[in-house]
Computed example of a mutant assay.
Amino acid sequence: MDNDINILHNSTTLASSPTQAVKYSTADFAPHIRLEWLKEVIGREYANVEITPPKTGVFNEMLIYSWDKLRLSVIRSNEITLQRLPHEPELISQDAYFAVVHLSGNYRLQQNGREVFLKPGDMTLYDATLPHHIRCPEPFAKLIVSIPRPLLKERVSGIEHCTALHIPGHLGIGSVATNFIRSCADKANELNAPEFSTLSEHALDLLTLALATVRPASINLSTSRTVALHRVKTFVEHHLSDSALTPAKVSTGTGLSPRYINLLFHDEDTSLMRYVWRRRLERCRQDIESDAHAGRRISDIAFRWGFNDLSHFSRGFRLLFGCSPTECREAAHQK
Rank of each mutant, 00 (worst) to 15 (best):
H166Q: 04
S25N: 07
H9C: 06
K39R: 15
N262V: 03
V41E: 13
Y97D: 02
H238T: 10
V176G: 03
S175F: 11
A30N: 11
A332P: 05
Q110C: 13
L151M: 11
R135T: 15
D287G: 02
I7W: 05
E50K: 10
K335L: 13
S93N: 03
E115G: 06
P131A: 06
H32S: 12
N112E: 12
V100F: 07
V227W: 09
L103A: 05
G169T: 04
Y260R: 09
L204I: 08
L63C: 04
S104F: 05
F317L: 02
S241A: 13
R279E: 15
C162K: 09
T12G: 08
C184Q: 11
Q20S: 11
A331C: 01
A212R: 15
T56P: 08
C162Q: 05
R44G: 02
G295P: 01
L272N: 03
Y97A: 04
R215K: 12
P139G: 07
L70T: 03
K142T: 11
K187V: 07
I298S: 00
V58K: 11
N106S: 14
L152K: 01
C284D: 03
F321D: 07
H170F: 11
K39I: 02
V74E: 07
S183R: 13
C184H: 06
H239A: 08
A128W: 06
F117Q: 14
F196K: 08
A164R: 00
Y260C: 00
T12H: 11
M62E: 08
C323T: 04
L171A: 07
A292E: 15
L281C: 02
I298P: 08
R215G: 08
L70F: 03
E201N: 09
F313N: 04
D95M: 13
C136P: 01
